[in-house]
Design a protein around this nucleic acid. Structure first.
Length: 267
DNA sequence: ATGTCAAGGTAGCCTTGA
């Protein structure tokens, strides 16, 4: 069977609902992993996407995080949050906040996680250490599925550009988060666990960037980064027939600052 | 100089986070 899976950091599912519905109708993914819902799970537009044939599992509290999985292939064994997921302890907080940044589900023949990896803010910031700890927890959480025979993938906004080729100006990023050797080592560790980086093709230009800052005309100038990634196990990666970044969805006003990434499989 | 955006609390702007 042919299966189309996609991931999209939508930057508010509420503000982007018309764009989301329009994109679902045109791209017709079987499974869509969303990040940055910026809406509480109770407020997710379940009915609107149901009318297009999707079941939804959402995990969110209404702030800047929140993740979901939409599926036309069923939605089983839903898990909200990673086992042992670390929380972030803000300066003014008493307790660490275990944020809604991961949700897993089985959609027909495929098991997926939709993840929104912490940004890290700045190297030496507590948020950066939190990011690394979070990635190690993710690696441990997916070990079994990564080594399994069932097609499996972790998709989402990793907030890491895997190589210098995935950044519009590597020199400008030296010493900044998203490109440090330590962050890239965390991705390498995922790969050593049996997950491959499924690199999409760009629809235009020669780099498959997935994110362009809203500021300074970054999108028209194609000053982007590839930080929305798909890490699939061997049964998943072997089944991939195509993958592309839908930069058309980044055009115009009222769009997310990220473009959807589409992965086609023949299972 | 961010050629920006969204949410939330609070009060018609400011702060936070990205």
């Amino acid at each position: 069977m042919t299966v189309r899976i996609a991931t999209w950091n939508i930057n508010s599912v509420t503000a982007r609902l018309p764009k989301l519905l329009e994109w679902l109708e045109s791209a017709k993914p079987d499974v869509l992993c969303l990040q940055e819902l910026k809406c509480a799970a109770d407020n997710f537009p379940y009915e609107e996407v149901r009318e297009l044939g999707y079941e939804t599992a959402a995990h969110g509290t209404g702030r800047w995080n929140g993740v979901a999985i939409l599926s036309k292939l069923g939605l089983d064994d839903v898990v909200r949050g990673l086992p042992e997921q670390p929380g972030y302890l803000a300066d003014d907080a008493m307790l660490p906040d275990v944020e809604p940044r991961a949700i897993g589900a089985t959609c027909g023949p495929v098991r997926v996680w939709s993840v929104y990896v912490p940004n890290g803010r700045e190297v030496d910031h507590a948020h950066y250490r939190y990011k690394l700890e979070w990635l190690e927890t993710l690696r441990q959480a997916v070990l079994e599925d990564a080594a399994g025979a069932r097609p499996f993938a972790v998709l989402g906004d990793f907030n890491i550009a895997p190589t210098d080729d995935d950044v519009f100006d590597p020199a400008a990023f030296v010493g900044m988060t998203h490109v440090t050797p330590v962050e890239r080592a965390a991705l390498a560790a995922l790969q050593e666990s049996g997950l491959q980086d499924v690199v999409p093709r760009p629809l235009k230009y020669d780099h498959p960037y997935t994110y362009w800052d809203y500021r300074q005309l970054a999108f028209p100038k194609n000053r982007g980064m590839r930080i929305d990634l798909t890490f699939g196990n061997k049964p998943f990666a072997d089944a991939v027939t195509d993958s592309y970044v839908d930069r058309e969805a980044r055009k115009g006003k009222g769009t997310s600052d990220h473009a959807p990434v589409v992965v086609d499989l023949e299972l």
